[in-house]
């Protein structure tokens, strides 16, 4: 049985830890602290926690005001509200100003599940990575989320971290080295390379195992920083395997797949395929059911890899 770690629980725990170490850390939420787990910080540091009510635009610009005054604000709500409803506030007051606001969402992608398409952000990476000055990151497990949050104490500039509702399989140990902008090779392979982020990293790891049984040696890269993207890692993978598959729980338009395609197209063209949500909105259902319905299973990733390999080899 694989060990699972909560992405949002890891976020809340990390906040409570860094809050104890640095009194400039303030946390703002928009009536979802129980869901985003910023409540774990709020319990320990009620004076530095600001519930803004159901008002995401005010949430983001108030956080910018805190940052302008030298604080390190973390602003949290569901991904769709953080990046969608408050997009222009994030643009004007956070990205344009280069302020040290950390926008950390939860409930991204279709694994939100039962709440349905209205609440499943499938476009947040696209929105955030199109903003100048914005760093965009997606943790692949709870350990990586904790490392990212700790990094945010000293990091300069605006950041979007895409969290999730669900628990993810544990991939890393406590000595995992996280660096902003640095892809991590999880598995080397010579036949093809999967570049994934978030939940799709563990799904893709299982895909690599399926492929191994079929006799294919497929590599896996955790691209946890979507912007600035690690172009070196992408070009290296393209040169070694000449067959790339991307996987993210996001619309295939504008997400990790697009970011990788941009690098490949400009620097090292090779065959590729994007596994992701095929430009359609989500629906209600259990996360597990939706992962199957929206073709985000390990089998879907391995099928995509086989397609690219066959195409490359002219079969």
């Amino acid at each position: 049985m694989e060990e699972l770690l909560g992405i949002r629980e890891s976020y809340g725990e990390a906040l409570a830890q860094i809050g104890a170490e640095n009194k400039d850390v303030v946390v703002l939420d928009a009536d979802l602290s129980g869901s985003t787990k910023t409540s774990l910080f709020a319990k320990k540091f009620p004076d530095r926690f600001f519930n803004m009510g159901v008002a995401e635009q005010d949430l983001m610009t108030t956080a910018a005001g805190f940052a302008a005054a030298g604080k390190i604000p973390f602003a949290s709500t569901f991904a769709i509200f953080a990046t969608g409803k408050a997009f222009e506030q994030v643009r004007q007051s956070i990205a344009y100003t280069k302020l040290n606001v950390r926008v950390v969402s939860t409930h991204s992608g279709i694994t939100v599940g039962e709440d349905g398409g209205s609440h499943q952000a499938i476009e947040d990476i696209a929105l955030m990575r199109s903003l100048p000055n914005m760093t965009v990151m997606v943790p692949a497990d709870g350990i990586e989320m904790k490392k990212m949050i700790r990094h945010m104490l000293d990091f300069k500039g605006p950041v979007y971290i895409r969290g999730a509702r669900n628990k993810y399989p544990k991939l890393f140990d406590d000595d995992y080295k996280f660096e902003v902008g640095k892809a991590v090779t999880i598995r080397e392979g010579k036949d093809a390379t999967v570049i994934a982020c978030g939940y799709m990293v563990s799904q893709s790891l299982k895909a690599c195992d399926i492929l191994k049984e079929k006799g294919y040696d497929v590599g896996l890269v955790n691209m946890s920083t979507i912007k600035p993207i690690d172009t070196g890692a992408i070009i290296h993978a393209a040169k070694v395997t000449k067959a790339i598959v991307t996987a993210d729980e996001h619309n295939v338009i504008g997400g990790l797949g697009s970011a990788v395609a941009e690098v490949l197209g400009e620097s090292s063209p090779c065959l590729m395929k994007r596994v992701g949500i095929k430009d359609i909105f989500g629906k209600s259902g259990s996360a597990g059911e939706l992962v199957k319905r929206y073709n985000l299973t390990p089998g879907d990733v391995s099928d995509a890899v086989m397609q690219v390999i066959r195409k490359r080899d002219g079969q």
Binding site: V26, F50, A64, G65, A67, A68, Q89, S93
Partner: peptide, 13 residues
């Protein structure tokens, strides 16, 4: 529409 929110953040800080 955004200046008052930013000012609130500065004043709270």
């Amino acid at each position: 529409g955004q200046g008052l929110s930013a000012a609130n953040g500065m004043a709270l800080a």
